[in-house]
């Protein structure tokens, strides 16, 4: 355990982490400072000191500033960082695992499964007094996980070795089927149509610390799980047979990677709704710059995805203030051209 700590620290010291951590800090400051009202970094700092260490506020800080920073923006920005990071990291793992640059956990039915679960819960007015506003996230998470397990089970029925083509094919076919069911539920839902559509568009509005704490354990489990498998992912990126030949138990590793990735993505979209493009673009960009070694690729993708979603969410909530745009549309609008630019820009070395 001590060795592990030392290794994490030494890896962090390498400059690329410092660079991204600096960018993350800037994104966090921008994300908390800017909004329908601008609040200066000094005030933000004072509010944080007040909340954490109970140091009295500087005079110019109003009560509403405290509420906006501490209860609205800070949890929102932190959630954006976790969700963006989770989507990007699981995207990186799945792309390597399936050796397909267009793959993501969404390929494995995570998003369609979550959508269907949430749509059913909304249309049938299912609620749970115990879970209150964590109910939809829990439903979304569980249904995405159930979908992935179902897809793995089907894939195994067809091909005991879980070959990547089988997984992709079963994933896509199942997603299409589930989307059919989803359309059916939406068509029959009547009044609740708007709720379902808005959930699907993806938003980080009204997400508070309960959501943050709700998602945190899954993010930790999922990302540590993937990080532990970094060598196996390196090997799998050279192809399944080649991984087997150097001693990787590919069948076990595949299932674990898919389950950890589904945990990350499932818990993320359960909180935010469907946010596209982060999981696809971030790993590509990081790979272009830092290569594919997963001990680097996974954490850097996490940081990159977090920064990306903080900034896109900042745009989504300020560009037409006081209204907000669905953050999912912004990630795609910004992500696609950014992706194209980086992709055609050769990695300097």
């Amino acid at each position: 355990m001590q060795k592990l700590c030392i290794q994490i620290i030494t890896t962090l010291i390498k400059s690329k982490y410092l660079l991204l951590l600096a960018l993350l800090t800037i994104a966090l400051i921008l994300g908390t400072g800017i909004g329908s009202v601008y609040i200066s970094p000094i005030k933000i700092f004072s509010i944080l000191l007040h909340k954490v260490f109970n140091i009295s506020l500087i005079d110019s800080v109003k009560n509403t500033d405290v509420a906006i920073i501490y209860h609205i923006r800070l949890p929102r920005v932190l959630i954006a960082a976790l969700i963006g990071g989770s989507l990007a990291m699981s995207g990186a793992a799945i792309q390597s695992l399936l050796r397909n640059p267009l793959a993501s956990p969404y390929t494995l039915g995570v998003s369609s499964g979550a959508s269907l679960g949430v749509a059913i819960a909304i249309s049938f007015h299912l609620t749970s007094p115990f879970l209150s506003n964590m109910f939809l996230p829990v439903v979304g998470f569980l249904s995405s996980l159930v979908t992935v397990i179902l897809i793995l089970y089907l894939a195994r029925k067809i091909d005991r070795n879980y070959s990547t083509n089988t997984i992709i094919l079963v994933g896509i076919v199942s997603s299409l089927f589930i989307n059919g069911l989803l359309t059916l539920v939406i068509a029959l839902s009547g009044d609740e149509l708007k709720n379902i559509i808005f959930w699907q568009m993806g938003s980080l509005s009204l997400r508070g610390y309960d959501h943050l704490l709700g998602i945190l354990p899954f993010v930790i489990i999922g990302s540590l799980g993937l990080l532990v498998l970094h060598k196996e992912l390196d090997a799998l990126a050279f192809g399944e047979e080649s991984a087997k030949n150097i001693g990787v138990n590919t069948q076990k590793v595949k299932i674990l990677v898919i389950l950890f990735s589904a945990t990350l993505t499932g818990s993320a979209i359960a909180i935010s709704g469907i946010i596209g493009f982060v999981g696809l673009v971030s790993p590509h960009i990081v790979k272009r710059i830092y290569g594919q070694k997963h001990l680097t690729l996974l954490p850097i993708s996490f940081l990159f995805g977090g920064i990306f979603l903080i900034l896109t969410d900042l745009i989504a909530r300020t560009i037409v203030s006081p209204s907000e745009l669905p953050v999912g549309s912004i990630t795609a609008l910004i992500g696609a051209p950014f992706f194209a630019f980086i992709f055609f820009y050769k990695r300097g070395k």
Binding site: G35, T64, I72, S321
Partner: peptide
């Protein structure tokens, strides 16, 4: 119009 939470608070 849709409105943001922090705008209502402010």
């Amino acid at each position: 119009l849709n409105v943001s939470v922090e705008d209502i608070i402010s």
